[in-house]
Amino acid sequence: MIQQPFGRTGWQVPLLSFGAQRIVDEHNCTEEEAIKIVNTAIDRGITYFDTAPSYSEGQSEHRLGLALQGRRHEVKIATKTHDRTRDGSLRLLEESLKRLQTDHVDEWRLHNMVSIEQLDRCFAEDGAIKALLEAKEQGLVKKLSISGHTNPQVLVEAIRRFDFDSALVALSALDHHIYSFAHEFVPLAREKGMAIVGMKVLALGKLGDWYEQALRYTLSLPISTSIVGMESMEQLEKNLAIAENFTPMTEQERLDFWKEIMHLATPQTLPWKASVWGSDTWYQRAQ
Rank of each mutant, 00 (worst) to 15 (best):
I2V: 10
Q4D: 00
P5K: 15
T9Y: 11
W11T: 00
P14V: 04
L15W: 14
L15M: 14
E32N: 08
I35H: 02
I37H: 00
D50M: 10
G58S: 05
G58V: 02
G65T: 03
L68R: 04
Q69P: 02
H73K: 15
A78H: 05
T81G: 15
H82V: 09
R86T: 00
S89E: 01
L92T: 13
L93W: 01
L97S: 05
R99D: 00
W108Q: 11
R109L: 15
V114P: 00
L119V: 04
D120R: 15
D126C: 03
A128C: 10
I129L: 15
K130Y: 07
A131W: 02
A135L: 14
E137T: 14
G139V: 00
L144H: 09
S145T: 08
I146T: 06
I146Q: 06
T150W: 01
P152Q: 01
L155Y: 02
R160F: 00
R160G: 00
L171H: 07
S172D: 07
A173T: 06
L174K: 08
S180Y: 07
V186M: 10
I196P: 01
M199P: 13
L204Q: 15
K206L: 13
E212D: 13
Q213M: 08
L221K: 11
E231L: 04
E234D: 14
L236M: 06
K238Y: 12
L240Q: 10
E244T: 09
N245Q: 09
E251T: 03
Q252Y: 05
E253K: 08
F257Y: 15
M262T: 03
M262A: 10
V276D: 14
V276Y: 11
W277E: 04
G278S: 08
